[in-house]
Amino acid sequence: MKPKSQIVDETTLLEQMLLVRAYEEAIVAGSVAGKVPGTCTSVGQEAAGVGVVSALAGDDLILTNHRSAAHLLARGADPGRLLAEVMGRRDGYCKGKSGSLHISVRELGVMLTSTIVGGELSLATGVALSQKMLGRPGIVACFFGDGAACEGVFHESLNLASVWQLPILYICENNQWQAFVHRRETMKGEHISERAAPYGIDGATVDGNDVLAVRSAALAAAEGVRSSGRPFLLETWTYRSRGHFEPDDQAYVDPAEHAAWLARDPIARSRQRLVDSGRLPPEEAAALERRVRERIVAALAFADASPFPALDEMTTDVYA
């Protein structure tokens, strides 16, 4: 399957965001019902993921982390195979061996997904070195969070990428939360993008809850990386509106902050903009939402019908 990279229509972006939301809500509902293992969602961050991926070219490569649903689905991953993976089934993209936390889909260029916070930062330099030394055209988009930006490997990665001039678009999804701790408790400064300058590279912060703003900033950043061969640090300013890991009662979250961010929900904003401007009549919006829900129902049925791996898979794929 070819990655979907040339999307320009906001309705299509909205549909992708709706798909990500419906997919993750299905996982949450499944975990409440005891049918799906608990997982880390990216609810509230859909625009940040969808907007950036929409700005990438088909031969660009993506490295992501445990909050990967938007990156995978926007890149064209099949929700049925993703759900099969989350449920540990044979038809999952990783044969059920990954589960939700580190899903890679090489055929779509989603490479080496790591759930070790900062793991993707350490691997991206190597992937970009291959692109550069083997003369391949694509750049490397590396998604991480504000938590990973507090790991030592953040420094090591940006420093080496700058010294070696590696074509990496670093995307920090600053979702305000580092597992169960607000970033205010763990780091100085508001913005991760301010850290670009000491490495001699450029950075920018964009409203991560506005899919068009994200797409526009990512297009400019990716083009810069592509033409200069140098890294760029883009920060998408967003919010993790669910807990760290399902289930999570979020008793530690300030209700006022939560409410303020919910009022800026990226899907509601995009939908409202489309409806208000007449580009998406309300009945068509409702039809879009219905289509997405039907896709997820079918995906869940596919995943549920997929068998568990044979027990001998426990020891396959260990050595090449």
């Binding site: 793991g119 350490s122 992937v127 970009a128 070195l129 692109q131 083997l134 030592g152 090591e156």
Partner: peptide, 16 residues
């Protein structure tokens, strides 16, 4: 050492 080894792992997985 972390980024040296990580860079090697990323490069190894993609053709070097």
């Amino acid at each position: 050492e972390g980024i040296i080894a990580g860079t090697a792992a990323g490069a190894a997985a993609t053709g070097l």
